[in-house]
C-alpha cells in the first residue's frame, strides 16, 4: 500500500492531464485544472518543507556543537524574523526595507562575484591542447566581440556575420541539443507515467 497508492495517484493524475491535452471535454478540463491548482499549492508546501529542512539542519548543527555553528545561529534568528515581518506586515515599509537593503545587496554581490570565478575557470581549463579546445576558445572570443554594444556600427559585415552565426552554427546546433533534450524529457516523463521510474518512492526499476 505504501507504494501502490502513490503510484496509482501519479498514473491517474498523469492520464487526466494528458487527456485534457488531447480532447476538449468540459468536466475533464475542470478536473485537470483542479489537479494543476493542487500541484501549485503542493509546490508551495514543498517550498515550506525545504525551508523547514533548512531550519532543522541548522538546529542540529547547534545541538551537536558543530564548528562554525554561529552561522547557524544567524540563519535561525534572521529567518523567523523575516517571516514574522513578511506575514504580519506584508505591505509594510519594513518588509520592503529588508528586501531593498538586505536581500538585494547580498544577492547582487554574490552574482557579481561569479565573474571572478568564470574568468578563473578560463585560466584553469582553457589551455589550447586540442582542436576542440581551440574551437571553444575561438568561439568564445568571437561571441564576446559580437556582444560589444555598438559593434554593428563598425561595419555592416559584422552585423551580417552575427546574424549568420546565430542562424547557422548556434541556431542549428542548439536546435539539435533542444531536440535531444526534448526526447530525453519525453522518455523520462513516460517512464514516470508508466511507473517504470518512481522517484517519489525512491525506487527505480532496472531496465
Amino acid at each position: 500500500m505504501r507504494k501502490t497508492i502513490p503510484i496509482a495517484a501519479a498514473v491517474i493524475c498523469g492520464i487526466v492531464i494528458i487527456a485534457d491535452y488531447l480532447v476538449q471535454v468540459p468536466w475533464l478540463h475542470t478536473a485537470a485544472a483542479r489537479l494543476l491548482e493542487g500541484a501549485v499549492v503542493l509546490a508551495g508546501f514543498a517550498l515550506v518543507l525545504g525551508i523547514l529542512n533548512l531550519l532543522a539542519f541548522n538546529f542540529r548543527h547547534i545541538r551537536d556543537h558543530t564548528p562554525g555553528r554561529w552561522q547557524s545561529w544567524i540563519i535561525l534568528i534572521s529567518l523567523p524574523i523575516t517571516v514574522l515581518i513578511g506575514t504580519t506586515f506584508p505591505g509594510s515599509g519594513a518588509f520592503t526595507w529588508v528586501y531593498t537593503y538586505v536581500v538585494t545587496p547580498l544577492m547582487t554581490a554574490l552574482g557579481a562575484l561569479l565573474l571572478f570565478y568564470a574568468v578563473t575557470v578560463a585560466v584553469r581549463l582553457l589551455p589550447l591542447r586540442n582542436g576542440a579546445a581551440i574551437i571553444l576558445f575561438a568561439s568564445c572570443l568571437v561571441f564576446m566581440i559580437l556582444w560589444i554594444p555598438g559593434i554593428s556600427s563598425v561595419s555592416p559585415f559584422i552585423a551580417a556575420v552575427r546574424n549568420w552565426l546565430y542562424a547557422l552554427p548556434v541556431g542549428a546546433s542548439m536546435r539539435g541539443l533542444l531536440l535531444g533534450a526534448a526526447i530525453g524529457a519525453v522518455v523520462a516523463s513516460l517512464r514516470i507515467l508508466s511507473s517504470l521510474e518512481q522517484p517519489y518512492t525512491g525506487i527505480t526499476e532496472k531496465h
Binding site: 514543498a46 518543507l49 525545504g50 575557470v121 579546445a133 571553444l136 517519489y200
Partner: peptide, 28 residues
C-alpha cells in the same frame, strides 16, 4: 526549486558549472 520538483531535468549545460565541466572534458 521545490524539493521533489516534478519536472525531469532536460536542460543543456548553460550554467557556469556545466560549461566548466564541458571544458574540463576537452582540456584533459
Amino acid at each position: 526549486v521545490p524539493p521533489g520538483s516534478s519536472r525531469p531535468p532536460h536542460t543543456a549545460p548553460t550554467g557556469i558549472s556545466g560549461i566548466a565541466t564541458a571544458i574540463s572534458q576537452i582540456s584533459g
